[in-house]
């Protein structure tokens, strides 16, 4: 990965990647793995980007797809080799941010289904419903209803 590509095309969007990866991981180690995988895939697939959407949308889409794929792989690995699975250290502090409210919000988001997590992350990032619908693969009306439902659920968890 050239440093130019990293500086110009990944660093400005690293916030997006971090926010998404944090929502799909429970440990710092997993977070770093997911983050690196996303960066690698962004670099690998850069030639497939045809400019039909914004680069940021491309990064969102890719980050979500990769996180979902990695979660699936992880689940499969656990099923195949239960003995190899390292139980996370219960004493490990999984709170990634110094802002306690944000940590609590992330904990609540992690209780949602994988797709709902994607929807709420995109919503909180102020992506238009149409774009969220495109990324998730559903209509924007459906997204609006879904977001209302997810927000209610989050409020319930947080309270």
């Amino acid at each position: 990965m050239s440093s130019d590509f990293y500086t110009n095309s990944i660093v400005p969007y690293s916030g997006i990647i971090i926010k998404i990866c944090r929502a799909y991981t429970d440990s710092q180690e997993d977070f770093e793995d997911y983050y690196q995988e996303v960066c690698l895939q962004v670099w690998r697939t850069k030639d497939q980007f045809r400019g039909e959407s914004k680069w940021s949308t491309w990064v969102y889409r890719l980050s979500l797809n990769i996180c979902l794929t990695m979660i699936k792989k992880k689940k499969n690995n656990r099923q195949h080799s239960v003995s190899d699975y390292v139980v996370p250290d219960a004493t490990e502090d999984n709170h990634a941010f110094s802002d306690e409210s944000l940590n609590l919000l992330y904990d609540a988001i992690k209780q949602l289904s994988e797709i709902d997590r994607a929807v709420i992350l995109l919503y909180l990032e102020e992506r238009p419903y149409r774009e969220i619908g495109e990324i998730i693969g559903t209509s924007h009306n459906n997204i609006a209803v879904r977001i209302t439902r997810i927000k209610e659920r989050l409020k319930k968890i947080l309270n």
Binding site: I17, I18, K19, Y35, F97, D99, S101, L102, L105, L124
Partner: peptide
Amino acid sequence: IWKEGFLKNDALVA
């Protein structure tokens, strides 16, 4: 919560 949380400098360290 989302907006304020990410305003802090340490929130988005890659």
